[in-house]
Nucleic acid binder design. Structure first.
Length: 105
DNA sequence: AGCGTGACGAACT
DNA sequence: TAGTTCGCCACGC
């Protein structure tokens, strides 16, 4: 477990239920521009359901990927359980559910 | 210490 | 409009 991973996981826990965020938003929130590093961090350490990694999606409004059980199928299922509907691997009203990290200022 | 890979993103053709 | 390429930063070998 690296410090960078923890930052990513902490950021994910800030995502409220029924909302989603993007890798780019997380990267920017961490003060970086490396969406790859964020995706790598989450992907290599799902950290179990303790982390709502299913609420993380690319800015494309699509599902992206998922290393958990069932893959993207489970990911979109979890989102639907939270009120975020998904059709054809694409999030419905994506930007409406899009959560931006509170800059706290 | 250097190269390649990766749950992405934006620009180019 | 859609497919491809390079870039980004951290991690593994």
């Amino acid at each position: 477990m690296t410090a960078f991973q923890k930052r990513v996981y902490t950021a994910l826990e800030q995502i409220p239920k029924g909302s989603v965020t993007t890798y780019g938003a997380i990267a920017h929130h961490l003060g970086s521009n490396a969406v790859r590093a964020v995706g790598t961090a989450v992907g290599k350490n799902p950290n179990a359901p303790h982390i709502p990694c299913h609420r993380v999606v690319p800015v494309s409004g699509k599902i992206g990927n998922y290393s958990g059980e069932g893959g993207v199928a489970t990911k979109m299922a979890l989102l639907k359980e939270e009120g975020v509907y998904v059709v054809k691997d694409t999030i419905v009203d994506f930007e409406k559910h899009l959560y931006i990290f509170d800059t706290n200022d």
